[in-house]
Amino acid sequence: MSPPPIPRPYRLRTLTQAPPRLGDHTLACVVHAAAITADEDPRRIHVPLPVLSGPAVELWETDSAVHCGHEGRIAYAQGAAILFAQLRVDGSAMRDPRRATAAAYAELTAFFARRRGWHWVRSWNYIGDIHRNAERGNGDEERYRQFVLGRHDVLSAEPGFEARLPAATAIGTGGDALLVYVLGARQPGLQIENPRQVSAFRYPRQYGPRSPSFSRARRLDWANGADLIVSGTASVVGHETAHPGDAERQLRETLENLRQLRRDAGADTWGAASTKLFVRDAAIWASVQPTVRSLLPATELCVLEGEICRADLALEIEVLLQR
């Protein structure tokens, strides 16, 4: 794929605290915290997860003019070649998670349809009480599986959708609400899958009535480099969870999956611009911290406490790589 005739259209900084005022060229200020606060600025994205270690804030900036506002339930900020959009669904609507998720994804799909030449390349999904109803029937009433169904209902309406799926993360939070925020770009990028893993959209029936609709990663090429946007990645080999009950071995397997994605994206020389480690609870972080520090010594890591989408997974890592 030939690089587009523009340089990387953003800068990403990680901070310990959010700035009190956002500059005119700010696209998004993503704030992770145990409690969220109301904020009218559409560029502030509040993620309700406790921070166990590292920088809690991501600040995305651009040199171009930024237009921001609201369209229906969507808050957005749009630069010349990159945009962010967020949509929050309250807990009352999430009593029917499939319908609420489908409605949210339909709104976001329509948002991009109104912007010719823009592509949805990354999404983050934070799902309150993600494992609720997991014990019912064969598990298909679990809130996460119902979320997967609602997302699939919308994205599968477009023929050949599996070849254009965004990278994604889905993590459970406290409370009942759903937060979806997305990254859009003026190019679709290249979808990357992992030969060590069955593609998520090809998972067998045992994981739910529909397979999850996301790609393992997307590569975006710019005139002055490339980005590898890696989905939330865990200790999954083939389609099965590897090393259930052993957080340290799951960490090492996860890192091997990330190494494979780097190789398949064309180089081993990617540097990490942002790395997030999600752990099921603080005790898991305490147990794997020495290994993390030895295997990722130069990485500025944000560690967040949140439920992983499979109950037998202790942790998950997402990363933005650049070269």
Rank of each mutant, 00 (worst) to 15 (best):
R21E: 15
R21A: 15
L22N: 09
L22A: 10
G23P: 03
D24P: 10
D24W: 04
H25T: 09
H25K: 08
H25V: 01
T26N: 03
T26V: 15
T26Q: 03
C29I: 05
C29P: 00
V31R: 10
A33C: 09
A33L: 02
A35P: 02
A38N: 10
E40I: 05
E40V: 02
D41F: 08
D41H: 05
P42M: 12
R43H: 07
R43V: 06
R43M: 06
I45Q: 00
H46L: 10
V47L: 10
V47I: 13
P48S: 08
L52F: 06
S53E: 15
S53N: 15
S53Q: 15
G54L: 11
G54W: 11
P55W: 08
P55S: 08
P55F: 05
A56R: 09
A56S: 13
A56I: 07
V57S: 08
V57N: 12
V57R: 04
L59G: 05
W60D: 05
E61Q: 14
E61R: 04
T62M: 00
T62K: 00
C68G: 01
C68N: 08
H70L: 10
R73K: 12
I74D: 03
I74K: 01
Y76M: 05
A77T: 00
A77N: 02
Q78S: 02
G79L: 04
A80H: 03
A80T: 06
A81Y: 00
L83P: 02
F84W: 02
L87Q: 08
L87A: 04
L87T: 09
L87N: 03
R88A: 12
R88Y: 09
R88S: 14
V89S: 08
D90W: 00
D90E: 13
D90V: 01
G91N: 07
G91M: 03
M94W: 04
M94R: 02
R95G: 12
D96H: 14
D96C: 10
P97I: 07
R99V: 11
T101V: 08
T101Y: 04
A103F: 00
A104L: 02
A106Q: 15
E107S: 15
E107I: 04
T109M: 03
F111H: 01
F111N: 05
F111Q: 05
F112K: 01
A113N: 11
R114C: 10
R115Y: 00
R115P: 04
R115K: 08
R116W: 03
R116S: 14
R116N: 11
G117L: 03
W118R: 01
W118L: 04
W120H: 14
V121T: 12
V121R: 02
R122V: 05
S123L: 02
S123R: 07
N125Y: 01
Y126I: 03
I127T: 13
G128R: 01
G128K: 01
G128V: 05
D129K: 09
I130A: 09
H131W: 12
H131E: 10
R132Q: 15
E135P: 00
R136K: 13
R136P: 00
G137Q: 10
N138C: 11
G139A: 06
D140K: 04
D140C: 10
E141N: 11
Y144M: 14
Y144P: 04
R145H: 07
V148E: 13
G150E: 06
R151K: 14
V154I: 15
V154H: 03
S156H: 06
E158R: 14
E158T: 15
P159S: 13
P159V: 05
P159N: 06
G160V: 06
